[in-house]
Amino acid sequence: MLHIYCPYCEEYREEEEFRPKGEAHIARPAEPEATSDEAWGDYLFFRKNPRGLHHEQWYHAAGCRKFFNATRDTVSYQILETYKAGQQPTVTAAARAAQAAGKGVAK
């Protein structure tokens, strides 16, 4: 039972109020008719399944009925951030790698 911060309601709410909607940031190709069958197939059917940080779309079904995104660690189940639809995550694998590299330089 996750405890999820809705960025629209600006409160933590119980998982029962939400529905998971799969991987976030799946962009619909801007020009579908100019997209190859393979690329369209990737858009429709292929999803990441990472061990560790994952960006997911959630829906506050029993609350504000808004879609938003969450960065969740699929190992610890900790939710590191939630952010509104259309926004970008700040906690990413790349940002973590850069941070780790930065620390290495500082030492």
């Binding site: 309601c9 709410r13 119980e14 029962e16 109020e17 029993a62 609350g63 504000c64």
Partner: peptide
Amino acid sequence: AVSSVFAKSS
């Protein structure tokens, strides 16, 4: 005032 889950409905 809030909306939430209530029993098995809302």
